[in-house]
Computed example of a mutant assay.
Amino acid sequence: MAMTADALDAPILRQAAPSADVRLPRPRLQWGAALKALQRLLNDKEDTGQVFEIMRALNGTSTARCYERLLTTARGGRIAYERQEMADKLMDDAWLDSLPVGSVGAAYRDFIRSEDLSAEGLAEVSRIEGAEVDIQHPYAWMGRRTRDVHDIWHILSGYHRDGLGEACLVAFSYAQTKGLGWALIALGAMSRSRGANYPYNKAIWQGYKRGKAAAWLLGEDYERLMAEPLESARKRLGITPATIYDSIPPEARDAAVPKRV
């Protein structure tokens, strides 16, 4: 789930952040909107905007719970107090270039550059009409944090950007966040993979189990994590190998979420 750097050639019309006294609307589940967006996403996995439509429809309460959980962690109070915008940090090329070879950050740097991705591009896609993305509120900030670390989770989990890799990562993300939007996307992908020649659904289910077994990644200090050796970070965080996903040939992984004819 990411945006190509080419999309940034046009001027970015960033929404002006409303003042801090703006009240967030009461979260409510919008299953109809979510299911329509899921259908569009399954027909085009590159239509990242549909992911945010689904998140907007289903993930409001889970984002609030994640923020409250952050405050209970050892570093969470400081992280919440500083309220760093991860997209801004991840757009700092000088910082990315300073990260050591073999680190989480070096792997992330190589990933986004080889795939022509951008943290700011992903942020722009999230600014769908009517979205409360940029408001000055702790829960909105937590939503941005969850959005911005998505591609770092690709690196930590070992899942690539093919159809199966994204499906496995959303299952992993559901286990981490309990956001129903992630669960809906994972189930939608599994519904398209029945009767396939490869164990796609087992790979997606393993993604959920890996996410459940791992440490809570939203509570991590990402500046420290990005400088940490990748394999050491995976071991510390309890992120086990993606054995089923890795067993499926790369050329077969996009077939996990086929487009409807």
Rank of each mutant, 00 (worst) to 15 (best):
D148K: 02
A57I: 02
R194W: 15
R236E: 06
A196E: 01
A167R: 00
M86W: 13
A2F: 11
L184K: 01
L8E: 07
A252R: 10
P138V: 09
M55T: 14
V257M: 03
M3C: 10
K36A: 15
D47R: 07
Q84G: 15
R224P: 08
D47W: 11
A33Y: 00
R144P: 07
F111A: 09
V22C: 06
S118K: 07
E85Y: 03
L24F: 07
L164F: 04
R236V: 09
I185W: 03
G195V: 10
G211A: 03
G76W: 03
P11L: 01
I135Y: 10
T146I: 15
A119R: 02
R236H: 07
R69C: 08
E223W: 11
R75F: 03
N201K: 10
T72D: 12
D6S: 13
W95R: 09
P229D: 03
Y245P: 02
A171G: 06
R56H: 14
P241F: 05
R234C: 10
T63G: 08
G211C: 05
L58E: 01
H154F: 07
W31G: 06
A175W: 04
E124Q: 12
S118P: 08
Y200H: 07
M142C: 05
M86N: 11
G77H: 13
E46A: 14
L96F: 06
A131H: 14
A106K: 04
T73R: 04
Q206N: 04
M91A: 14
V261S: 13
P241N: 03
D97V: 12
E166N: 08
V22F: 09
K45T: 14
I54E: 00
A213K: 13
L58S: 02
L96K: 06
